[in-house]
Simulated scan of single mutants.
Amino acid sequence: MAFIPHPQRRPVLVAGASSGIGAATAEILSAAGYPVALAARRVDKLQELTDRITAAGGEAVAVPLDITDESSVLECVAKAQAALGDLEIVVSGAGDLAVGLSYEVSPADFAAQIDIHLVGAHRLYRAVVPGMIERGRGDYVFIGSDVVLHPRPWSSAYVAAKAGIDGLVATAQLELEGTGVRASVIRPGQVLTGMGMYLDQKTTELMLNDWIKHGLARHGNFLEPGHIAQAVTAIVTMPRGAHMRVVEVEAEGAIQRTERPEGEH
């Protein structure tokens, strides 16, 4: 059976679009001609990006979103679809980072990370996927993490939440098979974003030293948010009939340059 190609107009909702990976994804997709709804709590930041996109000739709208509040999620989806049309693509990357040793972090702080990264992603997934199933097409892209494969000390709640994302996606892929809807997860390595930049120097040093001790910081190179945005683009532009289920993106190690022998060019 032949698959009907993607429609010409594919509205996108990017959750967590006020900075980092989400902002880069919104900019790259809008530049490629996708109408984009930018969603996050920091509406002022969203509006700045929306203005840049529209000034460049793109189509974008800023929509408030608190991923921990179901009513906010439902209202966000409704506003995005009212402005742009039925959502064809959703990129779920809203979240922040709280660190601490697993035996010291409070239950409330642990639960908050699970709520933001895992339950929040499910809130949004549940709000948009039934409509995608009804239309027989759609892409839902979860931003996961390589900590699922390589857990890092001081990040137990974050690791647990991202491991949960992997479990959710694996289950969703089974349930969505044959519906025309594709669920995918991207597992980035270390990305240079604002997430976690508020940490105090002492905590950061202790954490990084533990990462080094366990071989989790082999080199100092970081990914740029745009690298992950390019992975998102690769997933959603894949022609129907194929499915990029899991994409891992890691920073490339620095090239080791050696001095060339005299006279060699």
Rank of each mutant, 00 (worst) to 15 (best):
A2F: 09
I4N: 06
H6K: 09
H6A: 09
Q8R: 13
R10M: 09
R10C: 10
R10T: 12
P11L: 07
V14Y: 01
G16Y: 07
G20K: 06
I21N: 03
A23F: 06
A26V: 04
L29M: 13
A31H: 08
A31L: 10
A31S: 13
A31C: 07
G33E: 09
V36W: 01
Q47G: 00
Q47S: 06
L49P: 01
R52M: 04
I53T: 07
A55D: 08
G57Y: 10
G57M: 05
G57Q: 11
A60T: 04
I67T: 10
T68R: 13
T68Q: 09
D69G: 00
E70S: 10
S71L: 12
E75I: 05
C76H: 02
A78D: 15
A78F: 03
K79T: 13
L87Y: 04
L87V: 10
I89E: 01
V90F: 03
S92M: 14
G93L: 01
L97Q: 14
A108M: 06
A108C: 02
A111R: 14
Q113C: 02
I114G: 02
D115G: 06
I116W: 04
V119N: 03
A121G: 15
H122R: 14
Y125Q: 01
R126L: 11
M132V: 13
I133F: 02
R135A: 14
G136M: 09
G144W: 00
G144T: 00
D146Y: 02
H150C: 01
R152W: 00
P153T: 13
P153K: 07
W154A: 06
S156F: 10
Y158W: 12
V159G: 01
V159E: 03
A161W: 11
G164M: 05
G164V: 09
D166R: 12
L168C: 06
L174E: 05
L174I: 07
E175T: 09
L176H: 11
T179E: 03
V185H: 00
V185D: 02
V185C: 03
L192C: 00
G194L: 10
G196A: 11
G196D: 06
G196T: 12
Q201S: 14
Q201F: 08
K202R: 13
K202W: 11
T203D: 14
T204G: 07
T204Y: 08
E205I: 15
E205R: 15
L206F: 12
K213T: 15
L216S: 03
H219L: 09
G220C: 11
P225V: 00
H227A: 03
A229R: 01
Q230G: 06
T237D: 15
T237Y: 03
M238F: 01
P239Y: 08
R245Q: 15
V247A: 05
E248F: 00
V249S: 02
E250R: 14
E252F: 08
G253A: 12
T258R: 14
E264R: 14
